[in-house]
Nucleic acid binder design. Structure first.
Length: 371
DNA sequence: AATCCGGGGGT
DNA sequence: ACCCCAGGATT
């Protein structure tokens, strides 16, 4: 356990003054900084989990245009919510968002709770997001700790222990709590994150200490260790995975899509019916197995079409796509292709956008000239 | 405490 | 090729 730095009141005062001055002078004009609507701010915080600002902006704007209130979101079908999340990743966020909207309506009468403890009871809202909503939307002096803040604090106080270790996390949370400005918690919290995103940047970039408002107070800078901190836990290598996927179309051009069950990888999203080849099974045999699972009469033989790689943080997916045209009378009795799915549908090209597709599926359909 | 869960942009 | 991102839930 690393030593907890002492925080003299005068030091805290200086840090607050410098960071807040800098933030209110230099802050980026982000769309969710133009609203005070807790719903819009909550939506931004969920989308921003492990996701960059620039990626989120268009999603946030589109989502808010189509579902402008928590009531609209609560009333929407889950499939529609996932369709609007398609491409953003971490799809359990969308499902939790939807459940949380219904809770806000049913349990809280459509009015968001204001305290971190109450906010944290909402699905998809953890300690960080609760602190963010409480401080930014309601001005509650709650701390928050995200990747940016952890990096800034680790450098500012020269925290040498791994920032991924639970004991270090606790220490950083304690620092964040002691530092949050009671008069401007929103500005302080966003200032810390803004500093981490634009000045006190992670490797392989270099921290821009020459423009940092806290450079004079920074312990890592004083020790010349700003490039060495924070210490992160080593990353595990992604596991390799092969999926055989079947692009089955009718003569009219409709495509067979299957919806994955709610939990797990790509949960709730639509995709080409797929199967993982068994250890002793050839890809062609696995493709034939998918055809059989669809219950197609005559069991037409699929032909190998395209191969594509899709890299995730912890998975390396090899997608082997097979192509088949459905027999004319085969479209009525298409069955759910295996226990990874809970629905199957014939989707005309014009209706593809109404289905939530992962980027992997979108790219695959593109490569197959089906989208 | 470890693992799972997407995708993309910057270097 | 590698890093990590306005993290949370599950086991």
């Amino acid at each position: 356990m690393a030593a907890t730095p002492r925080l003299p009141a005068a030091r805290v005062r200086t840090l607050r003054q410098r960071l807040l001055g800098w933030y209110h002078r230099e802050r980026r004009d982000l769309p969710w900084r133009r609203t005070r609507d807790p719903y819009a701010i909550w939506l931004s915080e969920i989308m921003l989990q492990q996701t960059r600002v620039d990626v989120v902006i268009p999603y946030w704007q589109r989502f808010l245009t189509e579902l402008p209130t928590v009531h609209a979101l609560a009333a929407a079908p889950e499939d529609q919510v996932l369709a609007r999340w398609a491409g953003l990743g971490y799809y359990s966020r969308a499902r939790s968002l939807h459940r949380a909207a219904r809770e806000v309506v049913t349990r809280w009468g459509g009015v968001f709770p204001r305290t971190p403890a109450e906010l944290e009871e909402l699905p998809g809202v953890g300690r960080y997001t609760a602190g963010a909503i409480a401080s930014i939307a309601f001005g509650v002096p709650a701390p928050l700790l995200d990747g940016n803040v952890a990096r800034v604090l680790a450098r500012l106080f020269a925290v040498e222990a791994s920032v991924d270790a639970p004991a270090t996390r606790a220490e950083l949370w304690a620092l964040a709590e002691a530092l949050v400005d009671p008069d401007d918690p929103s500005g302080w919290n966003q200032g810390l994150m803004e500093l981490g995103a634009t000045v006190c940047v992670p490797p392989p970039g270099s921290p821009r200490c020459e423009v940092c408002p806290l450079a004079g107070q920074c312990a890592a800078r004083a020790a010349g260790r700003q490039h060495e901190l924070p210490v992160r836990a080593p990353r595990k290598a992604p596991r390799a995975l092969t999926w055989v996927t079947l692009a089955a179309t009718t003569r009219a051009g409709a495509l067979v899509l299957a919806r994955r069950k709610p939990r797990g990888l790509f949960g709730g999203l639509w995709e080409l019916p797929s199967a993982e080849p068994a250890a002793d099974e050839t890809p062609a045999a696995a493709a034939a197995r998918v055809v059989a699972a669809l219950g197609l009469p005559g069991r037409p033989a699929p032909r190998r079409a395209v191969e594509q790689e899709h890299v995730l943080t912890h998975r390396r997916l090899r997608l082997l796509a097979y192509r088949v045209t459905l027999p004319a009378r085969g479209t009525a009795g298409v069955t759910i292709p295996g226990d990874a799915y809970d629905r199957v549908a014939l989707v005309p090209p014009a209706e593809l956008a109404r289905h939530g597709l992962s980027s992997a599926t979108s790219r695959l359909l593109e490569a197959l000239s089906l989208a």
